[in-house]
C-alpha cells in the first residue's frame, strides 16, 4: 500500500507575502566554502608541500604504510563518531570500547578459540557497549556526554579486569589479518577503513536511516511527532559507533601483536571528535559528512607527521592540533 498524494489540491496560487530570507553576501559564501572544504584544502596543501619537501614522501611505503595506516583507525572511529554527532550526541567511550574489544578478542584467541569466534565475540561485546550508551541516551534521556562518560570511566577497568591488567602477546595470523595483512600490497586496515567509509557514506546518503539521523539531530521532538522512531535511530547510532570502535580495537591489538588494556585507545575519543570537528560537522547535530571525518583524520595525522618530521616535538604538534580545531570551529560559527 503506497500512499499517493491527495488528488486535486488547491490550484489557486498563494497570496502570502512570503519572502525567502535572502542568501547573502560574499563573505558568507567564503566561510561556507572554507567550512566545507577547509580540511580538504589543508590536506592538499600539506600533501603538495610534503611531496616537494619531504624525501620519499611520494612512495607507497610512506603513504600507505605510514600515513594511511596510522590514520585508518582514527578514520574508522571518526565515521561512527560523525553519525553519533549527527544525532546531536557524542560518544566518549570509544577508547574504552576499543580496549574491551581488544581484550575479548585476544583472550579468546589465546584460549584456543577459533579466530572468527573471537572476532565476532569482540564485535558483539562492542555492540553491547553501544547498546548500553544508546539505552541511557535514547530510553532514559541521559545527556550523551555523561551517558558515555560512564563507560569511558568504567570500560577501561572492565578491560583491565579481563586479564588483571596484564599484557597479552599474540601470534595468530588469521586473527591478526586485519592489523598485519597486506592484500594487493595495501595494509588491510586501510582497506577496512575505505570500506567502512564508503558503506557509511552510502547509508547516510541513500537510506531512510540516514535521513532519520539528520532529522533527529536537527529537531528530535519534531521528528518524533512526524513518526520518526527517534529512540531506535539514536540507539542504532551508538551501536554503530560501538561496533566501529570495537573493530578498531581489534586492529590495534592485531597490529601490536599484543593486547594492552591500559593503553589501547587512550585518547581516541579526542582524536575522533577532532577529526569530525575540523571537517565542518557541527557538534550540535543535524549534519553528517562521512568523507569529512575521513579527510579530517588523514589531515590531522599528516599535519602531525609533517611537524614531527621537521623536528618539531610531538608536544608542540599537539598544540598546533588544538589551534587547528579552534580555527575549524571559528569557521563553523558562521553557519546558522
Amino acid at each position: 500500500m503506497t500512499p499517493e498524494a491527495v488528488g486535486p489540491l488547491v490550484a489557486e496560487p498563494a497570496t502570502g507575502t512570503a519572502t525567502p530570507v535572502p542568501r547573502g553576501a560574499r563573505r558568507v559564501q567564503w566561510t561556507v566554502w572554507a567550512q566545507r572544504y577547509g580540511a580538504l584544502a589543508t590536506l592538499v596543501v600539506l600533501f603538495v608541500y610534503n611531496a616537494i619537501a619531504t624525501p620519499f614522501f611520494l612512495t607507497p611505503q610512506s603513504l600507505l604504510f605510514v600515513l594511511l595506516r596510522q590514520a585508518a583507525p582514527i578514520a574508522i572511529v571518526a565515521v561512527g563518531m560523525a553519525i553519533v554527532i549527527g544525532t546531536a550526541g557524542i560518544d566518549l567511550s570509544v577508547g574504552s570500547v576499543m580496549a574491551i574489544a581488544g581484550q575479548v578478542g585476544a583472550t579468546l584467541v589465546l584460549h584456543d578459540q577459533p579466530f572468527l569466534l573471537a572476532i565476532v565475540a569482540a564485535l558483539l561485546v562492542s555492540a553491547v557497549c553501544g547498546l548500553f550508551n544508546g539505552t541511557l541516551v535514547a530510553r532514559f534521556g541521559v545527556q550523551p556526554i555523561i551517558a558515555t562518560l560512564i563507560l569511558f570511566i568504567a570500560g577501561r577497568g572492565i578491560a583491565q579486569l579481563i586479564t588483571g591488567g596484564k599484557l597479552q602477546t599474540l601470534a595468530d595470523p588469521d586473527f591478526q589479518w586485519i592489523g598485519l595483512a597486506r592484500p594487493f600490497g595495501v595494509p588491510a586496515q586501510v582497506i577496512v577503513a575505505v570500506v567502512v567509509a564508503v558503506v557509511a557514506w552510502l547509508i547516510m546518503r541513500f537510506t531512510v536511516f540516514g535521513r532519520y539521523v539528520l532529522a533527529v539531530g536537527g529537531n528530535e521532538t519534531a521528528s518524533r511527532l512526524a513518526g520518526v522512531p527517534a529512540a531506535r535511530v539514536k540507539l542504532l547510532a551508538y551501536v554503530t559507533s560501538g561496533v566501529l570502535a570495537g573493530l578498531v580495537g581489534l586492529i590495534a591489538v592485531s597490529a601490536n601483536s599484543a593486547s594492552d588494556a591500559n593503553n589501547v585507545g587512550v585518547g581516541m575519543e579526542l582524536d575522533a571528535i577532532a577529526a569530525v570537528a575540523v571537517a565542518g560537522t557541527p557538534l550540535t547535530g543535524g549534519k553528517v559528512t562521512v568523507w569529512g571525518a575521513v579527510v579530517g583524520a588523514v589531515m590531522l595525522k599528516l599535519l602531525q607527521n609533517t611537524l614531527i618530521a621537521h623536528g618539531i616535538t610531538k608536544e608542540v604538534a599537539q598544540m598546533v592540533e588544538g589551534a587547528v580545531i579552534i580555527a575549524a570551529l571559528w569557521l563553523q560559527r558562521h553557519e546558522a
Binding site: R211, L214, A215, G218, A222, S223, L225, A336
Partner: peptide, 12 residues
Amino acid sequence: TDGIIPQLSVRE
C-alpha cells in the same frame, strides 16, 4: 520546536 527540522531542506 515541534514541527520543522531547521537545517534540513524543504524536500526532507
